[in-house]
Design a protein around this nucleic acid. Structure first.
Lengths: 138, 138
DNA sequence: TTAAAATGTTTTATATGCCTAACTTTTAAT
DNA sequence: ATTAAAAGTTAGGCATATAAAACATTTTAA
């Protein structure tokens, strides 16, 4: 049984960012990771080593960064939560987009799969209940 | 204009715990704080100094701990979020109580007032919409 | 092809938050 | 009043996450 130790919020953010960059540019670069996460280039290197050590990314000094299968699996989970939460905040709660995104970024680390699944099922039902005026107002 | 610098999740947890203990015992004691938060007695002292420095608690070495007005205001805000989120998770999403509490504990730090207010208004509407089967199912 | 710019890395340092262990103060029991 | 237990504090350490600045490598442009 392989264990999947819980990642810190910080490490989850790195994986999420690497996934996004990989989508946009095929590979992730240290500079871009730093830029997205608003941290310094120098701080990125250590984190990349740690992620590589946990077999979550492929990393060689001065090389490009890509997610391993396990890293991608983790990143996708986090991204799913982010997308879902942002949608809930923005579309259902009518929070402005920037706040929705920022808040989703923080809430996404706080939910396990069980809660996430139930939350998702709940929103699905809300969406299927258009006769109620539950949505679309300030 | 006095500023209210953002508190770390950890410090918010301390305030919340101190509020609860104050309710139960009039004052909070180092030992009980440690017990509730599952940390060692020795770790509490430094935090108390920091909170006292920010004028959030009244603290004297070897003395009891109480919240200042500002500290209480902060603690009440956090507690409000906690209670609300736990209720949402437990009652609306049907998450088991222990998970609801644990998850609320983590989500409560991620929401600003704007989001909280909208979330609350949303749940109010859900509750006022009993003809839909949005609630009460697994 | 070589020098400058861009990118990546290393080192040193800081802050947070926690632990352990030794020590001090307070409290409670006799 | 004395002393043992309980509670609180201090000191030293460790891990994480970050910054700044110097250094190394790679890329780019002339």
């Amino acid at each position: 049984m392989i264990k999947r130790p819980r990642l810190s919020e910080s490490l989850e953010d790195y994986l999420e960012t690497i996934l996004a960059l990989q989508r946009e540019n095929t590979v992730a670069r240290s500079k871009d990771i730093a830029q997205r996460l608003n941290i310094k280039r120098g701080s990125v290197t250590g984190i990349l080593k740690k992620l590589a050590n946990s077999d979550l990314i492929n990393y060689e000094p001065y090389g490009y960064v890509t997610l391993t299968p396990e890293g991608e699996k983790r990143a996708l989970e986090i991204e799913r939560r982010h997308v879902f939460l942002k949608d809930f905040l923005y579309r259902i709660l009518s929070v402005d987009e920037e706040t929705a995104d920022r808040t989703a970024c923080r809430m996404e680390h706080a939910m396990d799969n069980q809660v996430f699944d139930k939350f998702k099922a709940f929103v699905k039902k809300i969406d299927a209940c258009p006769h109620s005026d539950v949505q679309h107002d300030t």
